[in-house]
């Protein structure tokens, strides 16, 4: 925990875990789609399910899906703004099993793609995404995150790592998971800076790569792209 995490974040209340953390999880989930979601099913677990309304968790999740950061003054009106933006929201409560008490499953879709993200708000506004499209990966939103859907085959991870290395990009964390040997796989890489656009384009053209998304850092205070972050210009659907 850094000094600015202790005195911070600057955020819209009332709860760092149930409001700011929820907003960040939704913001990360939104960015796993190329264009904004038009429909979202949000399944709340544990303390999230029990105290969602009191903590504005529903509004914070809607805000994140709209691309707002935790300090955005529009968070209290996010449910109305979502409706106006044509984003259909459905909230559910369910026991999601052996996960952190503050966990939400976000199932998002738009005309061309769907994605499922499972994440937890672990306190003080810090978050962990632990599953994307059923793959058990792990990232925190504290760094730039590269998500790569790929084929499970020798050299797949090395290839991606080498291309990042050639661009001088340092990998802070790396998690990978596969459905079966030789089948679909995914890796999450937390990296110290966003790679050059042509590097992302090149990665996404590789035969071994089926899907690629670049997620922003979400721990900073001021939204770098306040209204709606532009969709990542990376091709390929999941």
């Amino acid at each position: 925990m850094g000094l600015l995490d202790v005195i911070g974040p600057v955020m819209v209340g009332p709860s760092s875990s149930h409001t700011a953390g929820a907003c960040r999880l939704a913001l990360l989930a939104r960015n796993t789609l190329l264009t904004p979601p038009t429909r979202a099913t949000l399944t709340l677990h544990g303390s999230f399910a029990k105290t969602a309304k009191g903590h504005g968790t529903d509004r914070a999740l809607a805000a994140g899906l709209l691309g707002f950061f935790p300090d955005d003054p529009r968070i209290p009106e996010a449910l109305t703004l979502a409706e106006r933006a044509g984003l259909e929201l459905e909230f559910r409560s369910r026991d999601l099993g052996d996960v952190h008490p503050n966990t939400v499953q976000l199932e998002l879709e738009n005309a061309s793609e769907r994605v499922s993200v499972l994440g937890s708000s672990v306190g003080g506004g810090l978050v962990r995404v632990v599953r994307v499209n059923g793959f058990e990966i792990l990232f925190s939103g504290a760094y730039h995150t590269l998500l790569v859907g790929h084929t499970d085959q020798p050299g797949a991870i090395a290839t991606v790592a080498r291309i990042l290395a050639d661009d001088g990009v340092n990998i802070a964390t790396l998690h990978c998971a596969r459905r079966q040997r030789g089948g679909a796989a995914m890796m999450s890489l937390e990296i110290d800076r966003r790679p050059a656009q042509f590097v992302l384009d090149y990665l996404s053209q590789l035969r071994v790569v089926s899907w690629l998304r670049m997620l922003p850092e979400v721990m900073q205070t001021a939204a770098p792209t306040p209204a709606a972050p532009s969709p990542q210009e990376v091709p390929h659907d999941p």
Binding site: G8, V10, G13, S16, T19, I75, G124
Partner: peptide, 21 residues
């Protein structure tokens, strides 16, 4: 009270305890 109104505050260290410091 700003926090309870969903106003903008600095968590210090949390939002619920943001007023003490």
């Amino acid at each position: 009270e700003e926090n309870a109104r969903m106003g903008r505050i600095v968590a210090a260290p949390t939002a619920g305890s943001a007023g003490t410091l």
